[in-house]
Simulated scan of single mutants.
Amino acid sequence: MAFRRRTKSYPLFSQEFVIHNHADIGFCLVLCVLIGLMFEVTAKTAFLFILPQYNVSVPTADSETVHYHYGPKDLVTILFYIFITIILHAVVQEYILDKISKRLHLSKVKHSKFNESGQLVVFHLSSVIWCFYVVVTEGYLTNPRSLWEDYPHVYLPFQVKFFYLCQLAYWLHALPELYFQKVRKEEVPRQLQYICLYLVHIAGAYLLNLSRLGLILLLLQYSTEFLFHMARLFYFADENNEKLFNAWAAVFGVTRLFILTLAVLAIGFGLARMENQAFDPEKGNFNTLLCRLCVLLLVCAAQAWLMWRFIHSQLRHWREYWNEQSAKRRVPAAPRLPARLIKRESGYHENGVVKAENGTSPRTKKLKSPLRPKC
């Protein structure tokens, strides 16, 4: 983190320098944008990085409400919050995860997975709280018909748009973090899969004006993922603690069912009954049969792939468990050797010690321990 002491110094702008100081570099760039707010000449440019753009005043019954829609300038805002996320990632890593992992004494493989789950636990927990707050305050839970009514949902409240920008910034920041964290080559394909999966779904909901439905689906997905990574952290702390994995396995299947049901209800039935079904990208209307089929196919394919991976991993774990149990049963028990009778030496006792007839103390013979089976 910034202003911390370094045990090693690396050549300026070398590969190791960038890896070990990427959070400090991001902090400097963020600081430059914040300083730009202090001057009138650069204030307008600095606001492009910090605040969501494309605000529109929408008249209501009482007064006017400011809403937002998306555009190319959102990329600038996302870039700024990518640097913010990199800084927060480094703070969590250095001041929380590194201190915990030192006490656990994990191997390299477990240490990498512990860091991954630790970062995702913090992210999923904060996202679940934030998403639940947005869903409740906007009334999407109390009125499910609002997920497809008045489509297209071009104009978004501030907190909805800002939530999507931060979500895109986090998953985009995860791509360079694979390089900064020196993730093993064997782990890169797996992490790229779920990073790209999240980016496609979040960006699709944002650009196709399905933001309300996307919030509900993210809330369900993040709740399940939080439980999974929390279970992994408890497992790394104590390998006998697997109760949370059983709870996650039960919740995982139910979540897949809820996501599929909600997607089919909102897209397959709700949007299909809307009167306006003309393809008009300028007005943000993508409510056509082809677009609905593509979105449903993407959601169903993703859920089917996740369910197949879950079943495959569970079968593998059960197979390994039963192989271990059968191997333990096949190991023969070690035969116990009969205890040898110790004959008392001839002589007399003096102060509790056996003395020989000639007055010398006989040597005591050691008992041999029974043989142990080889592990």
Rank of each mutant, 00 (worst) to 15 (best):
F3A: 07
T7V: 00
L12G: 01
C32K: 04
L34R: 12
M38P: 00
A46K: 07
V58H: 09
D62I: 03
E64G: 05
E64R: 10
E64M: 13
E64L: 09
V66D: 09
Y68V: 00
Y68Q: 09
H69Q: 11
G71C: 03
D74R: 02
I82L: 14
H89L: 05
V91H: 06
L97R: 02
L97Y: 01
R103S: 14
K108M: 12
V109N: 11
S112K: 14
E116F: 11
V122R: 01
H124S: 13
S127Y: 02
V128K: 02
Y133N: 11
T137H: 15
G139P: 08
L141R: 03
P144V: 05
S146G: 08
D150N: 14
H153W: 05
Y155M: 11
P157H: 11
F158R: 13
F158M: 08
K161G: 07
F163Q: 14
F163V: 06
Q167D: 01
L168Y: 00
W171Q: 07
H173W: 02
E177L: 10
L192Q: 04
L197E: 11
V200N: 04
I202T: 08
I202K: 00
I202N: 01
A203V: 02
N209S: 08
L210I: 04
S211H: 04
I216N: 02
L220W: 02
S223Q: 01
S223L: 13
E225A: 08
L227K: 03
L227V: 10
F234N: 09
N241D: 10
E242G: 03
L244Y: 12
F245N: 10
A247P: 01
A250V: 12
F252M: 06
F252D: 09
T261Y: 07
L262F: 06
V264R: 02
V264K: 07
L265M: 09
I267K: 02
F269L: 12
L271I: 02
L271G: 03
N276Y: 09
Q277V: 04
D280T: 02
D280F: 05
P281S: 06
N287F: 03
N287R: 04
L289C: 06
C291R: 04
V295N: 03
Q303A: 06
Q303W: 00
H312Q: 15
L315N: 14
L315E: 05
W318E: 12
Y321W: 11
W322R: 14
W322F: 12
N323L: 13
E324G: 11
P338F: 00
Y348Q: 08
Y348K: 06
H349Y: 14
E350W: 11
E350K: 15
V354F: 04
N358W: 00
T360E: 13
P362K: 06
R363L: 14
K365W: 10
K366N: 15
L371E: 11
